[in-house]
Amino acid sequence: DAPDEFRDPLMDTLMTDPVRLPSGTIMDRSIILRHLLNSPTDPFNRQTLTESMLEPVPELKEQIQAWMR
Rank of each mutant, 00 (worst) to 15 (best):
30 S>V: 12
55 E>M: 12
31 I>D: 01
56 P>F: 08
51 E>W: 12
37 L>H: 11
11 M>D: 10
3 P>Q: 04
16 T>W: 12
24 G>I: 02
43 P>Y: 04
42 D>Q: 01
48 T>D: 12
68 M>P: 04
57 V>A: 08
52 S>A: 14
38 N>K: 14
24 G>F: 04
45 N>G: 09
1 D>I: 14
31 I>C: 09
10 L>I: 11
2 A>N: 05
13 T>H: 07
8 D>R: 03
59 E>D: 12
42 D>S: 04
21 L>R: 01
18 P>I: 03
21 L>H: 00
19 V>D: 00
47 Q>L: 10
6 F>Q: 02
7 R>F: 13
34 R>A: 14
49 L>E: 00
66 A>G: 08
7 R>L: 12
4 D>F: 15
37 L>Q: 14
22 P>R: 03
2 A>K: 05
57 V>C: 13
16 T>P: 04
52 S>Q: 13
39 S>I: 07
28 D>M: 06
62 E>N: 11
11 M>S: 14
34 R>M: 13
62 E>H: 11
40 P>M: 10
1 D>F: 14
2 A>W: 13
43 P>S: 01
14 L>A: 03
66 A>Y: 10
44 F>N: 02
45 N>T: 15
5 E>Q: 12
26 I>C: 07
1 D>R: 14
46 R>W: 12
56 P>N: 09
60 L>D: 00
22 P>V: 05
51 E>I: 14
3 P>V: 04
58 P>S: 09
43 P>Q: 02
65 Q>P: 04
36 L>A: 00
30 S>I: 12
39 S>T: 11
26 I>Q: 01
52 S>P: 08
44 F>T: 05
62 E>G: 09
14 L>I: 14
17 D>W: 06
16 T>N: 10
56 P>L: 08
20 R>K: 10
35 H>T: 03
7 R>H: 07
34 R>I: 10
51 E>M: 12
17 D>M: 05
42 D>H: 04
32 I>W: 03
21 L>F: 03
38 N>H: 14
18 P>A: 01
34 R>N: 11
40 P>R: 13
13 T>L: 08
27 M>K: 00
62 E>D: 11
37 L>I: 12
68 M>E: 09
30 S>P: 11
38 N>E: 13
26 I>R: 03
24 G>K: 05
53 M>C: 06
3 P>F: 05
69 R>H: 13
46 R>G: 15
26 I>A: 01
58 P>V: 09
28 D>L: 05
51 E>S: 11
33 L>W: 05
57 V>N: 05
3 P>S: 05
55 E>P: 00
61 K>M: 09
24 G>S: 04
8 D>W: 03
53 M>V: 05
31 I>G: 04
46 R>S: 14
10 L>G: 02
27 M>E: 02
44 F>W: 12
27 M>V: 08
13 T>K: 07
35 H>L: 13
42 D>W: 05
50 T>E: 10
10 L>T: 09
37 L>N: 10
22 P>F: 04
11 M>C: 15
38 N>T: 15
14 L>K: 02
39 S>G: 07
63 Q>F: 08
55 E>F: 08
69 R>M: 13
33 L>N: 06
52 S>G: 12
2 A>L: 13
67 W>M: 05
26 I>V: 11
37 L>P: 00
14 L>Y: 06
26 I>P: 00
33 L>Y: 07
26 I>G: 00
61 K>N: 06
44 F>K: 02
41 T>N: 08
27 M>Q: 00
58 P>A: 09
56 P>G: 10
10 L>V: 09
21 L>N: 02
15 M>W: 02
2 A>T: 12
41 T>C: 12
36 L>C: 05
14 L>E: 01
38 N>I: 14
27 M>G: 01
68 M>S: 08
4 D>Q: 15
37 L>K: 14
57 V>L: 13
18 P>L: 04
31 I>N: 08
30 S>M: 13
31 I>M: 07
52 S>T: 11
45 N>W: 05
49 L>V: 07
43 P>L: 03
23 S>G: 09
18 P>H: 03
14 L>G: 00
54 L>W: 04
69 R>L: 13
9 P>F: 06
41 T>G: 05
39 S>M: 08
12 D>S: 12
10 L>S: 05
46 R>Q: 14
51 E>V: 14
66 A>R: 14
45 N>P: 01
42 D>C: 07
54 L>E: 01
46 R>I: 06
38 N>F: 14
18 P>V: 03
56 P>E: 12
38 N>L: 14
43 P>T: 01
43 P>K: 00
55 E>Y: 08
22 P>H: 04
30 S>L: 12
69 R>A: 14
65 Q>I: 14
42 D>L: 03
4 D>W: 15
65 Q>R: 12
12 D>M: 14
25 T>A: 13
21 L>W: 03
32 I>N: 00
48 T>F: 15
32 I>C: 06
33 L>D: 02
21 L>M: 06
20 R>V: 06
25 T>L: 13
7 R>I: 09
51 E>G: 08
58 P>C: 08
21 L>S: 01
25 T>D: 05
48 T>S: 13
31 I>A: 09
36 L>E: 00
40 P>T: 10
34 R>V: 09
47 Q>G: 10
45 N>I: 06
5 E>H: 15
50 T>W: 10
65 Q>N: 11
15 M>C: 06
29 R>E: 02
55 E>Q: 13
60 L>E: 01
51 E>A: 14
22 P>S: 03
3 P>G: 04
5 E>Y: 14
4 D>C: 15
23 S>F: 04
45 N>Q: 06
11 M>N: 11
13 T>S: 10
46 R>D: 14
11 M>F: 11
55 E>A: 09
60 L>I: 06
33 L>R: 08
18 P>G: 02
14 L>H: 04
49 L>W: 04
54 L>T: 01
20 R>G: 01
50 T>S: 12
35 H>A: 06
41 T>K: 08
2 A>P: 15
63 Q>R: 15
